[in-house]
Write a protein that binds this DNA or RNA. Sequence first.
DNA 1: CCCGGCAGGTGACATCTGTCACCCCTGCGC
DNA 2: GCGCAGGGGTGACAGATGTCACCTGCCGGG
Lengths: 201, 201
Amino acid sequence: MIRVVIAEDQGMVLGALASLLGLEPDIEVVGRAPDGPAALDLVASLRPDVLLSDIEMPGMTGIEVAARLGEARSATRVLIVTTFGRAGYLRRAIDAGVRGYLLKDSPAERLADAIRQVAAGGRLIDPDLAATAAFAPPDPLTDRERAVLRLAQDGRSNKEIGRALDLSPGTVRNYLSEAAAKLGASNRIEASRIARDNGWL
Amino acid sequence: MIRVVIAEDQGMVLGALASLLGLEPDIEVVGRAPDGPAALDLVASLRPDVLLSDIEMPGMTGIEVAARLGEARSATRVLIVTTFGRAGYLRRAIDAGVRGYLLKDSPAERLADAIRQVAAGGRLIDPDLAATAAFAPPDPLTDRERAVLRLAQDGRSNKEIGRALDLSPGTVRNYLSEAAAKLGASNRIEASRIARDNGWL
DNA sequence: CCCGGCAGGTGACATCTGTCACCCCTGCGC
DNA sequence: GCGCAGGGGTGACAGATGTCACCTGCCGGG
């Protein structure tokens, strides 16, 4: 019997996934978490074979949860199931020690097999995303550029961004200009959009 | 027996919802559609009691589907299940003749009851969202302002927006300035964000 | 026919942005 | 000690943006 904990912040999807897995004779859903910290606690106390986790959750992302489990030498393997087919997310997930990465776009039938594969010690990445990611350019941004873009994307001015990051407005402008050049964007809005779409923010 | 068609573009969620409803003795999932047009076709051919539909789908949104069904005097009642708790979406959904509106955030247990209620001719709106929406300000934007904001949000310049909408760049600036003033924003980026978050775009 | 309202436009002005060349530190390898 | 890379900063300039007052043409109602 494969023991699984599910972490997913959308209650309806959480329940639906649980019922989907409930149909499988060799899989047992032993716990459900609505956010990152709860997932971490449940894995610590229940020690399931697999944690099936979303990425975007309150408190902590699924990727952070995976990283924490890795640090704690947990035996639980993490399988990410997410909406976002962004190459940058996949990259970070793999670096965090995740064992599988599926998209919610793919057919539901794939899920149980993915869990079996991961539980058996295998690895698994959504094939479409793997192909995309293999040819995607790597993240060209520096930490500063990322920070500045994050603030720029919700309308802060150079002056405000400078205050927030303790930089002069002129320097903020330089970073944004650099970032736009790297991303082939013609202004901060386009630059943030490109970075966001690639999962670099 | 309540006959239901599900429209949802994320395969995994579609399958999971179907299995969730499969547990209910009085509900039968008779069809599944991965996009708007397919949903419309399925409803036309299967004439289910209820269409359970997402909003954001390829081809046509769930709200548009509901509007088309209304025009066609279809007896099928539409229940929206969506991620987005945006007051503007709810408003438009109701105007389109939708009979229920649930959030994916709410617990899975609510779904089956919602379907029964809608199938029986009742109406149902997620209580939290209903409360929020009741106090939310109405959409203050004109069609022009909306169009301009939509283009501004992905980084087009005044000149480009003008070309796209066949307006002079100066007029575009005026619309954006107007919109920002109405929304209490200090620039086009913030204005687009506010409008988007409220479901006004 | 006249008037008011409304969509669209113009011009002027202050700011903000984007681009670029160049400066100042600090740390580090030699 | 020298050189130099890298983070941060400055100044100047062109062009984009935000704000506002005011103009035009068109339409629908008195």
